[in-house]
Simulated scan of single mutants.
Amino acid sequence: MYSDAHFHLSERMKKILETNPLSGIISCTTPKECIEAKAFLSKHSSYTISCGIHPWKCDTITWKEMLPFLEKAQIIGEIGMDNVWCKKDLDIQKTIFEKQLQFAMQHKKPVVLHTKGMEKEILECIRLYPNTYHVHWYSCMEYIEEYRDLDCYFSIGPFPSVDKSVQKVCQLVPCDRLLIESDGIDAISWALHRNIQDDEYLSSLYTIAKQIGDIKKKTAEEILEITYHNLQRFLTQKTL
């Protein structure tokens, strides 16, 4: 039972998923991506769209542009703040982030979080907007317990064995709140510092499961089944 809780729909991913169907969440950060994902879903209904203004695009994608897609999306995200991978004005990032948090809470839509370098600030924000949260590829040694205590889901990206902070997430977060994600085939290549071929996609998800299992004292097959059912629960869970 394979699942991918967070990925972006590149042309490579479309081809991969056509031959390797599974359950997953397609992350869309622009109106164009939302339209392309909707077209893909018309033929591949096992996937779900998440939609949100990414912190990297907080000053290029407007609320007015994205609102029609936010209204139709089942999940809001990935949204958040980032002071590591981008240099966008943090005040602008926070304003659009909080606006989306409020929208998600009001419309009872779960949220996928991007937290890079802003883990403390985002934790403070989401405490003001009770909801169901999925923390995407968390890679910070701090605040894991605080997010965990808010009953957040955590998706584990490629690969736990190369990142001590991700290992700590696996150790501290209960199995029923863990998910597996690729972030897309290109992100797997980035994490491993080598070019990943399309036919390595499923084996990469299996490797993530095995590395989580090594920490949790479970088999890769058990972790694949647990994370699959966790994703189904997240997709159907009613927000607060």
Rank of each mutant, 00 (worst) to 15 (best):
59 D>C: 00
23 S>P: 00
94 K>A: 06
81 M>C: 08
40 F>Q: 10
195 N>H: 15
204 S>G: 06
70 L>G: 06
237 Q>I: 14
178 L>K: 03
164 K>M: 07
89 D>H: 11
91 D>V: 13
31 P>L: 01
3 S>L: 05
230 N>G: 04
64 K>L: 13
182 S>K: 09
234 F>P: 08
147 Y>H: 09
137 W>N: 13
217 K>V: 03
37 A>W: 02
121 E>I: 13
77 G>I: 15
140 C>V: 06
160 P>Y: 04
202 L>K: 13
199 D>N: 10
35 I>K: 09
165 S>R: 08
95 T>G: 05
40 F>V: 07
233 R>T: 13
157 G>E: 05
74 Q>A: 14
179 L>D: 02
197 Q>A: 12
135 V>S: 06
165 S>A: 12
78 E>A: 10
134 H>G: 03
58 C>W: 01
196 I>R: 00
57 K>R: 10
221 E>W: 07
56 W>Q: 11
20 N>D: 14
114 H>N: 06
76 I>A: 07
71 E>Y: 03
29 T>A: 05
174 P>A: 10
129 Y>Q: 10
46 S>M: 09
20 N>W: 01
169 V>K: 11
67 L>G: 04
67 L>F: 08
235 L>W: 10
147 Y>C: 10
108 K>T: 01
217 K>N: 14
34 C>D: 11
165 S>H: 14
220 A>K: 15
38 K>Y: 13
174 P>G: 10
122 I>H: 01
116 K>M: 14
213 G>V: 05
214 D>E: 15
138 Y>L: 03
170 C>R: 09
108 K>Q: 15
28 C>K: 03
36 E>D: 07
12 R>W: 12
126 I>F: 02
172 L>S: 11
82 D>T: 03
125 C>V: 06
30 T>W: 00
33 E>A: 14
164 K>D: 11
85 W>S: 11
148 R>I: 00
238 K>L: 11
174 P>F: 09
119 E>Q: 15
81 M>S: 14
214 D>A: 14
141 M>W: 07
5 A>R: 09
55 P>M: 04
122 I>P: 04
170 C>Q: 02
220 A>E: 15
201 Y>N: 00
210 K>P: 09
103 F>V: 05
30 T>P: 01
31 P>H: 08
54 H>S: 07
32 K>H: 05
62 T>Q: 06
49 I>W: 00
194 R>N: 07
76 I>H: 10
132 T>C: 13
85 W>P: 07
217 K>F: 13
25 I>Q: 04
52 G>Q: 05
187 A>Y: 09
142 E>N: 15
30 T>C: 00
23 S>C: 08
107 H>D: 08
2 Y>K: 03
8 H>P: 04
126 I>S: 00
109 K>W: 13
188 I>C: 15
87 K>D: 12
161 S>W: 07
175 C>F: 06
234 F>L: 14
125 C>R: 13
63 W>L: 07
196 I>C: 09
63 W>E: 15
206 Y>V: 08
113 L>P: 00
97 F>C: 02
107 H>Q: 12
229 H>T: 12
108 K>L: 05
20 N>K: 13
25 I>M: 04
